[in-house]
Computed example of a mutant assay.
Amino acid sequence: MHTCNYLFLACVAPLVLGLNENFQAWKQHFGKQYRNSREENYRYGIWKRNLDLVYRNNKDNTSGFLMEMNKFADEKCGGYRKPSVSKTFPVNLNMLYSDDVPDSFDWRKKGAVSPVKNQGQMGSALAFATVDSIESMHFIKTGQLVDLSTRELVQCCNASMMSPTFDCVQKLGGICSAASYPDSHTCQSKQCTPVAKVTGVTQVKKGDEGDLKIAVYRQPVVTAVDASHSSFQLYRSGVYYEPRCSSTRLDHALLVVGYGTLEGKDFWIAKNSWGINWGMKGYILMSRNKNNNCGIATSAMYPDGM
């Protein structure tokens, strides 16, 4: 007798009977609608393959993390992301010397991290992570956590590369609050008053997780990762480690807000932009000190500002 259902949070036996019924229940749960039967059959095929993948991962949990049939279970890897955040640009590199940092730290406990957002159809995870980082920087400097306009960044900047995105915010004179930015399909930055300003950007030493730890202790850090695997797409909980991950082919952006250790496994606390129903209420614990797994420290930087 199996204990699995369409949410597949933790399985101890494969789901054999009622496969289509579970797919239909999964569709209803996530409000999925397809254009025609051909597309539904195509999505159903992907869903079944992911179901098998989740079962195989969760049945003995040797990977150290759990997967689930979340809202992305009918999508191929990468179908919902915009790539190209891997290239790095010359920035103001301030050397980080201090090793006087705690073994664990979490900016959420300081009130410095805004609620998890859902990029949805807007796309551009980099824009969301960049705005999140500026919100945190602004809080650390002023004590005020303001919901800044991701729409402004998407409409007024080419949010596909990290350093130029921060440069764009600097040239705009800052970024407006979400509440004050006009509802429009074109850039309206001149129609609102900037709340947070960026004066520069500091890049973490490429591939150095020690530098990243010090940087994160200073303030939340934007980083690019390889998120092209189903294990990331369907992540549920635990310390995520993907042996097939690349440290150079990076296609997604996250905000690193802390770090720690769980049952002997070091991790980074990373905020995603796929809503609170993905992962650990919108967060993922990325492996730390595992040879820069998924490129967590390859292209990481944080804004300077006022």
Rank of each mutant, 00 (worst) to 15 (best):
V257Y: 01
F139W: 12
A129C: 10
L9N: 13
G173E: 10
S273W: 04
S177N: 09
S104K: 13
Q24E: 15
E68H: 04
A215E: 03
G200W: 03
E75T: 01
G45H: 10
S180D: 15
L172W: 07
L234C: 00
E209V: 03
V198W: 00
C156N: 13
C4L: 13
P14V: 13
V131H: 06
I214G: 02
V113H: 00
V225S: 06
Q24G: 08
K27W: 02
P303M: 07
L66V: 05
D208E: 03
D60K: 08
W107Q: 05
T199P: 07
T248K: 13
V101P: 02
D99L: 10
D60N: 15
S237V: 10
Q170T: 13
V257G: 01
K76Y: 03
E242C: 06
K110A: 12
Y6I: 04
S180V: 06
H138A: 09
M280T: 08
G238N: 03
K206R: 14
S37C: 08
G238I: 05
R49V: 10
N289A: 13
T193H: 09
E209T: 06
F30A: 05
I296E: 04
F105V: 08
K76L: 12
D132T: 13
M286C: 09
P182F: 07
P243K: 01
K76M: 09
D100F: 11
N70K: 05
I46V: 15
Y283I: 12
S231I: 00
R81G: 02
K205F: 01
G258M: 05
V257K: 00
Y42M: 14
T261E: 15
V91G: 06
A196S: 14
S299Y: 03
L234W: 00
V195F: 02
V239Y: 05
A129D: 05
E39L: 12
S177D: 09
F139V: 10
T62W: 11
P14A: 10
L126V: 14
T223D: 09
A215G: 04
C156H: 07
K171Q: 11
S184T: 14
F89C: 11
D106W: 04
M161N: 13
V239G: 07
T223S: 15
K27Q: 13
M95Q: 13
V12N: 11
M1Y: 11
D167H: 10
Q24P: 01
A129V: 09
S177F: 08
A179P: 02
N289S: 12
Q170D: 12
L93W: 04
L19Q: 14
V221T: 10
C77M: 03
S230I: 00
V12A: 12
N292Q: 08
K117D: 12
L234T: 00
D266P: 07
T248E: 11
D304V: 06
S163F: 09
A127H: 04
F8P: 00
K271P: 06
L262W: 04
R108I: 02
E75Y: 11
P303R: 01
M69R: 06
L285S: 01
L254V: 15
G282H: 03
A178D: 15
K87D: 11
Q191T: 11
R218H: 14
A159L: 07
C157K: 10
K76S: 08
H252T: 11
T150I: 15
N5E: 09
L9I: 12
